[in-house]
Design a protein around this nucleic acid. Structure first.
Lengths: 225, 225
DNA sequence: TTTAAAATATGATATTTGTCATGTTTTAAT
DNA sequence: ATTAAAACATGACAAATATCATATTTTAAA
């Protein structure tokens, strides 16, 4: 079993605020797990008795709406924590977490996290800052979804994915989402997302190779209304 | 100047986690202010060097979108704190706060809050829980705006306002919003909000008296699609 | 490899929502 | 009480988006 003290990933989340002793304690009771692409880590309503630390891979956080469609709220990546909101709110999961590619995930029991939150003010302040950041992002998403056109939001997602995941050697976005995932991020029908991506292709803003997408004209993409 | 130790309002927010000594310290350096309906408490981009505690009244938190329309993210009411996200995130305000009716607001300087966040784990944990709750609400708003129809969202807002603000002696919602505010909450054009409320009136779901709105048929309102 | 299933694509059309114009009512200042 | 401004209301129409149908392509399992 790998050791938290030596794990580089914790530098990217609130666990970096823990002391060596605290890390050792956590390390001794954490578990680790491989999650295959498409696998569910937890579902809306599940009781999550701890926090996940993403060692590798990406997953989507989504929620099923009454109309039967999933809305993707957030992509959670290597280095992020997962499940902290439910844990702190003392309630079952509000969102589902599903792997978008193969992942490696550690699990830290609730009791350990709660203990450190009470004993280590640096840790809880860091957690608070991270939560404040997430809240800002969600508030901004509300404004975007409420006020921008679907076309504009699809363009935004492409720019976001480029900025956060980068591109491979051939210039294709390093993360491959299905058209349905694109639709569920921007909050539209799958056909609409497909149509808009096709239009972007015709207009030379992007090119595609199966699922893969390459941004061809950033400037124009940023100017999409 | 009134005293925080004796202020009933703090029971409704994280300040309840402070000790008598901490409250005395905060009380000695807080300021108090009357805010008239329509007045701006702070604007997007402002540096807020502290936290507001709402002693009375209601304000809206909104953000201007590139299309020139305001999106209302949240209503902040008596007992709530205001500005804590910006303070904790160490950044300027992401949203504007504007009074919806006459308010009484206390202001606690940043240094005091930060001091207590570092010294009192109960306080920071409570703040964290409040922030976790706000995040859940925002995530749910994303799903609703992305997936429900405008009509559905208008119905939801009416039900929400009833649940959170109640009604007066005659059965009218205790809080009076302009049609534009309704539009900016659900993320639609003002005319669309007006049209939908008119339709609800015709269908007997609500009745109106000028700005005032009375819910006449809850069951039907909840079933609006 | 073959083949069935899933994902992508696109047309036709319906529905929802936005925009612009214009009139009416309400509100608040004089 | 009068009046101007703001808010509310509604029609006509345009634009955006969803839905349904049906190919085509890609993916993954046998």
């Amino acid at each position: 079993m790998s050791k938290c003290e030596q794990c580089i990933v914790r530098q990217f989340n609130s666990l970096k605020a823990l002391s060596k002793e605290e890390l050792l304690r956590i390390s001794s009771c954490k578990t680790s797990r491989i999650v295959k692409k498409g696998e569910v880590i937890f579902e809306e309503g599940d009781t999550i008795n701890g926090v996940f630390c993403i060692k590798d891979g990406v997953c989507k956080l989504s929620k099923l709406s009454p109309n039967g469609k999933d809305q993707i709220i957030k992509l959670v990546v290597k280095g992020d924590l997962l499940g902290q909101r439910s844990l702190i709110g003392e309630e079952s999961a509000n969102l589902s977490a599903i792997a978008l590619n193969d992942m490696e995930v550690c699990f830290i029991p609730k009791s350990e996290i709660m203990y450190d939150l009470q004993k280590n003010p640096k840790f809880s302040l860091d957690m608070l800052q991270q939560m404040a950041h997430d809240l800002k992002e969600s508030d901004n998403t509300i404004v975007n979804i409420a006020q921008k056109s679907v076309k504009n939001r699809v363009a935004d997602v492409l720019i976001y994915l480029n900025a956060h995941f980068g591109v491979d050697q051939k210039g294709y976005l390093s993360i491959n989402l299905s058209r349905e995932d694109y639709a569920n991020i921007v909050g539209t029908a799958t056909e609409s997302a497909i149509r808009i991506l096709s239009q972007f292709k015709k207009d030379g803003l992007i090119s595609t190779q199966g699922k893969q997408i390459k941004i061809e004209d950033f400037k124009k993409l940023e100017r999409v209304v």
